[in-house]
């Protein structure tokens, strides 16, 4: 059971209040019409899915309903940090 710190509510809440929304920092192409099928497909579907450090998007679904980012180890499940949308992670994979 994760104990997750919501940076908006500024407190720890249980995992069940949150919803994982996948890989973070996926930039939408600035000009989608100019994308090739390959570029658009990779934006839509292809993911890093690393074993180890992962930056991911979470939403406090049963709380403030705001999105935030988390850096988490996908093998040990240790939560390294949480940070708000627009901020950069301080823990990164080497």
């Amino acid at each position: 059971m994760f104990h997750i710190y919501c940076p908006h509510c500024a407190e720890y809440r249980e995992e069940e209040e949150f919803h994982a929304a996948g890989q973070a920092h996926i930039a939408r192409p600035l000009d989608p019409e100019a994308c090739s099928d390959k570029e658009w497909g990779e934006y839509m579907f292809f993911r890093k899915n690393p074993r180890g450090i992962h930056h991911e998007l979470w939403v406090h679904a049963a709380g403030c309903r705001k999105f935030f980012n988390m850096t988490r180890d996908t093998q040990t499940y240790e939560i390294k940090e949480v940070y708000k949308i627009g901020e950069k992670p301080s823990v990164v994979a080497e």
Partner: peptide
């Protein structure tokens, strides 16, 4: 995805 990374490409997968 771990093996694909060794080969240098991504897959449309989440584990």
């Amino acid at each position: 995805s771990v093996l694909a990374k060794m080969a240098g490409f991504d897959l449309p997968l989440e584990s």
